[in-house]
Design a protein around this nucleic acid. Structure first.
Ligand code: ZN
Ligand code: ZN
Ligand code: ZN
Ligand code: ZN
Lengths: 143, 143
DNA sequence: CTGGGAATGTTATATTGTAACATCGAGATG
DNA sequence: CATCTCGATGTTACAATATAACATTCCCAG
């Protein structure tokens, strides 16, 4: 399967002294294999196919780890999780979420980042991270 | 109490043919009276002081109405609700959320709006609304 | 007044997320 | 190798958020 993904994640974790265990890797692969974001309980259903005893805490603990490592993002407005398209340095995600087909595109736009930085500064606010979720209709669905 | 608020909301709703009922106005006033965003069940607790029979659906229905009318915003990352500081035309909210004191400031920054518009356009995406929640430390707490 | 649609009451349940504590297991230490 | 230790996992129960479904009431147009 996604050996490429797994190896890259493994490398990143190793470099940080973090342990990408079998369970955590399973959750990462489940999330990464999905075209759409998955809810925690959808991940749980998938995980149970290889590990029938899994419980909610199992999934949430793995997700906590993967979020810390910047390997997945959480979509606040969908209560769901999606792989990061360019892990490496953890970063705030910016997403285009299609209401029609449910697809989500992760973008990385420095101009958005800059404008947010300036707005925060203008209010004397020290930003530490951001939730940027843009909802609408994707190119494919707009036709 | 906040007669000013209530009157303005009343005027806006009347102009649109929307009915700001007693219940809906109660919920609006509860939300507006709070310095911090309130969760639906916090609103419910408050509402029950004047209407002991209120149930979750009561609150969620009122919130749906107030959200549609642009009188309150939902904070996705906090699962909570806050009054709009400048109702009139419904608009996407932009928020600075302090992790330390819990205060939330609503801002309206055209530069953020523009950068998001351009990024969406660049992906052929028709944006219809946005979730912009900037988390960090407010001026007061930063000192 | 009366009919009809919107608003509310009421009950039950779905969905998402955590707490708490027992147990396991990989790697360090001697 | 033995054993110690701490992070990871197993397990159970529960908290917090949100919605479904259907009965009833209320407001207003006609
Ligand atoms: Zn990313
Ligand atoms: Zn689409
Ligand atoms: Zn607003
Ligand atoms: Zn603060």
């Amino acid at each position: 399967m996604s050996t490429r993904l797994a190896r890259n994640a493994e490398r990143l974790c190793r470099a940080r002294g973090a342990r990408l265990t079998r369970q955590r890797r399973s959750v990462l692969e489940i999330v990464a294999a999905s075209k759409r974001p998955l809810g925690a309980y959808e991940i749980l259903d998938a995980l149970r196919r290889e590990q029938p005893g899994a419980a909610p805490a199992t999934v949430y603990r793995a997700l906590d780890f993967l979020l810390e490592q910047g390997l997945v993002h959480r979509l606040e407005s969908l209560h769901s999780y999606i792989r990061c398209v360019h892990p490496g340095e953890p970063h705030p995600g910016q997403f285009l979420i299609c209401r029609d087909c449910g697809l989500v595109e992760e973008i990385e736009d420095p101009a958005i980042q800059r404008s947010i930085g300036r707005a925060a500064e203008h209010s004397g606010f020290q930003a530490s991270d951001e939730v940027i979720e843009i909802r609408g209709r994707c190119r494919g669905c707009a036709r």
